[in-house]
Amino acid sequence: MNIYALVKRTFDTEERIAVSNGKIVEDGAEFIINPYDEYAIEEAIQVRDEHGGEVTVITIGDEEAEKQLRTALAMGADKAVLINTEDDLDEMDEFTAAKIIAEYLKDKNADLILAGNVAIDGGSGQVGPRVAELLAINYVTTITNLEIDGTSVKIIRDVEGDSETIETSLPLLVTAQQGLNEPRYPSLPGIMKAKKKPLEELELDDLDLDEDDVEAKTETIEVYLPPQKAAGRVLEGDLSDQVKELVDLLNKEAKVL
């Protein structure tokens, strides 16, 4: 089976976020594989181990993203592709990313493409379904279980807490929800092997794309931090008085009851 996993290098949002000149300060920050993409990589590896074939991980970014691709290879992916846009693009949006990935995938005859259902930095969750649409294949988002039998696919997806069982077929793109699996940590032998696995680097030129073809449709004009919340009030006194005071405050001051 020909399996692809879409990976994004993201800022670890457990980090403190600072803004300078309208941009998030990235110096010294920790970068990780988007956690939802880890579920996608893990599932890709498990599907390959059960059904045979090859897992290729793809990302768009600059050379720094090689680190996250090597981590995916160390988990067990077979090959990696870095589409390096550093020299070509200053700005990209979801349209841009999907167009580039779809252009790469269009002649690859992918049976199964997996992605995270959302990236924890941008948080729009658009790229997976956009790629599927551009490739004219079906997609199912926020999946928590995947069973493949020949070309038949049975999926359970999370719909705001409810679960839907879906029957469909390959080729297919799915996006991973938490609960799909437990992503493995790369083993030491895995890390050693990953160094020798193929990592292909491409630029827009190699995909016959011009900057104009992928020009962003939207533009971010400002990034800012939410206003600092004033420190809250921790109530004092006898517990039952505290509760009375709290309910009174919620009723009269906050007016939320």
Partner: peptide
């Protein structure tokens, strides 16, 4: 719209179309 899990916000404009 919120970004970075609500730790920051961005202002976005549609370019055209």
């Amino acid at each position: 719209r919120p970004i970075y899990s609500g730790k920051a916000f961005e202002k976005v404009k549609n370019k055209e179309g």
